[in-house]
Simulated scan of single mutants.
Amino acid sequence: MARAATPAAARLLRAALLLLVLVAAGRRAAGAPVVTELRCRCLQTLQGIHLKNIQSLKVTPPGPHCGQTEVVATLKTGQEVCLNPEAPMVKKIINKMLNK
Rank of each mutant, 00 (worst) to 15 (best):
T69L: 03
L12P: 15
G67M: 01
L43N: 08
K92Q: 14
Q68W: 09
A30N: 02
K58P: 03
E80P: 10
V21L: 08
A29N: 04
R27L: 15
T74V: 06
T69Y: 02
E80N: 11
M97P: 01
T60A: 06
K91I: 01
R14M: 04
R28I: 09
V71S: 03
L98M: 15
K76T: 00
I94N: 02
H65S: 06
V81S: 02
Q68K: 09
L57A: 02
V35L: 11
A87L: 07
A30L: 01
R3G: 07
V35N: 12
C40L: 01
A15P: 12
V81R: 08
A32W: 13
A9D: 14
V71M: 01
T60E: 05
K58V: 05
S56D: 14
P33F: 09
I93W: 11
T77R: 07
G67K: 05
G26R: 03
I49E: 05
G78S: 08
V59T: 10
P61M: 08
E86I: 00
L20H: 13
R11E: 13
H50M: 02
N99G: 08
N84D: 15
A16C: 13
A10P: 07
G78N: 05
V81D: 03
V21C: 04
S56Y: 14
A15D: 09
A29W: 10
V71P: 01
C66M: 07
L98K: 15
N99M: 06
C40H: 01
